[in-house]
């Protein structure tokens, strides 16, 4: 009985689609944030997030409700990003330029300088280290989930995250980021001061 039920795909009900859609809608802000870290340019990032959202919607029949939809959609988004990149390698250079431009632009004029430097520091990391650090350090994924999203071993994610942390620390410490005129230690001091403030709030 069970075997037969598995072979013939059960009909998707409208309720299934509605439940899927509800969950997907809740993930949109997270998809946008992840896309932003990959693309840099907010418009390109939203295009990527929309593509990923639609790919997820079209593939809804293959998703098992109750499993981790966030990790699943992040994997779709990431695959989409890299397949687009492969399609035109020149685009990646444009992406980089756009990223550098937007990394400098901050929407909130009140935002302290340090956020800028963190963005610039992130942009200097190798892509695989950056994404590992973002998934684990900002996206709230476990190493196992991040490994699934990136299609690599858990140990690989762990070492990427730890290398990324060390590199980022060194970049911020040395002021190795490309910023004319700013003194080296300022970024780190500002980050520390701000983190203290934030941690007392939490």
């Amino acid at each position: 009985m069970e075997g037969a039920a598995e072979k013939t795909r059960p009909e998707r009900s409208a309720a299934d689609d509605a439940a899927f859609k509800r969950e997907l809608v809740q993930l949109i802000p997270h998809l946008r944030a992840f896309a932003r870290t990959l693309c840099g340019d907010p418009t390109a990032a939203d295009d990527l997030a929309q593509d990923a959202m639609m790919k997820a919607w079209d593939a809804r029949a293959s998703f098992q409700m109750g499993t981790n939809m966030k990790a699943w959609t992040f994997m779709i988004l990431r695959n989409q990003f890299y397949s687009e990149k492969r399609r035109s390698w020149r685009q990646s250079q444009l992406d980089q330029e756009a990223a550098e431009r937007t990394l400098v632009a901050v929407d909130d004029p009140e935002a302290p300088v340090a956020l800028d430097e963190l963005r610039q520091g992130l942009a200097m990391l190798p892509a695989e280290q950056r994404e590992a650090l973002i998934l684990v350090g900002a996206g709230g994924f476990a190493y196992e989930e991040a490994a699934e999203i990136c299609g690599c071993a858990v140990g690989t994610v762990k070492s990427r995250v730890s290398r990324a942390r060390r590199a980022l620390h060194a970049i911020l410490e040395d002021g190795a980021y490309d910023r004319d005129g700013a003194s080296a230690g300022d970024a780190m001091r500002s980050i520390l001061a701000d983190a203290e403030r934030l941690s007392t709030v939490r």
Partner: peptide, 11 residues
């Protein structure tokens, strides 16, 4: 830790 807090904030 400070970088971690910042990273989350950025996201």
């Amino acid at each position: 830790q400070a970088i971690g807090v910042r990273l989350r904030q950025m996201f």
